[in-house]
Design a protein around this nucleic acid. Structure first.
Lengths: 202, 202
DNA sequence: CATTCTAGATCGAACGCTCATTCTATGTTA
DNA sequence: TAACATAGAATGAGCGTTCGATCTAGAATG
């Protein structure tokens, strides 16, 4: 019954299966180190069959990058919708730090950025999603600053956003270079740093 | 004359030639995307000849990673040897930011960390060098804090170091995701953030 | 000084393998 | 039966690496 939607969902399941397997393989071997043969084995299907769902390997990479950034957009939207945005940001610092400190997650995100630094197609996906994130975060910080009586120009707000994101994204590099980071001590330091950033006089 | 040293320097010149070519190729195509054939062409020699100077491709990667980190160790040593360390750090923030914002440099550093997240050999090189950097920076910050009358335990100092480095390393990711960062506005914000980090009460 | 010798530098073809991708044949389902 | 799902072998290109042949520059020899 309902053949159209059943078939569509079957195709979607297969696509999701391939993407999940690809994420695994890319984490372990990188975008260029992982082969279609490996991915197809992890996904439980033949190599050729993958080409029924993705035009080529780069299309798989693009889909993973796009999905990853979509998830991040949802997170920033959540924070912005909180009633007291400043406190919501500070309260969720621990959550953000935990995600950045996860080595599996961090490894894939670094792989994506490294790929973006040389693959124009991936760069475009990454940069357009980043633009949306930045703009959302900029509005959030502007509101927070206004509530505390500060009025900043756009360039300053943009720079604040960069410092804010730098700290978290930097942690993704840190957790690879130093796997022994103590989250419980880093969290209050991050909160202090963010308070200083949000409260500073112009 | 002096055959031994002449021959040795010739070999060193060749090694340096190969490494320079490899850095170029790795930046453009990544560690696994760049081929020995490409590197040999860029270095102006035959593919086979490269194997007279490096055991295999991974040895080239290792040499680049090691050289990169050695340069960083020299930089931190310089800062630590300044008479007023706190002011030396703040004064050199712009310099550090400029290096992080360079997309070519950042791309290769991200490639290295991504590789470290899955290649145990590269991970070991990266982590042992990072340990030295952290310890050096930790002593520097401890001295600075003591001079201002604060005494911190090792865990807190270690976390301060992580926040400090996170900001700079995060900027390497930022410059890929957002190539339009305005350095002149980010620099004072970084200085403020660092002051807040170094001056905070425990 | 001219010649021979030799050891290292260098080349580039060749090897075996794996890759991304294609294609044809077969299975499945409605 | 018609249309789609799936398999897996085939293809040709490119990979890292090896290897024997050639070149070259300086030492040894006469």
């Amino acid at each position: 019954m309902c053949p159209e939607s059943v078939e569509r969902s079957r195709a979607e399941v297969r696509r999701a299966q391939i993407l999940a397997a690809a994420v695994d393989c890319f984490r372990q071997h990188g975008f260029h180190g992982a082969s279609i043969a490996q991915i197809s084995k992890a996904a439980g299907m033949s190599p050729g069959h993958i080409y029924h769902y993705f035009e080529n390997k780069e299309a798989i990479i693009s889909a993973i990058v796009a999905g990853d950034l979509e998830r991040f957009l949802i997170l920033t939207a959540e924070i912005r919708s909180a009633c007291n945005v400043r406190e919501a940001m500070l309260a969720r610092v621990g959550e953000g730090i935990d995600e950045c400190l996860d080595q599996q997650t961090a490894g894939l995100k670094l792989e994506i950025v490294a790929e973006a630094s040389r693959n124009p197609h991936v760069a475009e996906i990454v940069r357009s999603a980043d633009k949306v994130c930045r703009e959302s975060l900029m509005l959030t910080i502007r509101d927070t600053r206004r509530a505390a009586g500060h009025e900043d120009d756009d360039a300053t707000l943009a720079a604040m956003v960069e410092v804010f994101i730098s700290m978290f994204e930097g942690l993704q590099i840190r957790t690879i270079r130093n796997p022994g980071i103590d989250r419980s001590i880093v969290i209050p330091l991050f909160q202090n740093a963010l308070r200083a950033l949000l409260d500073q006089s112009p």
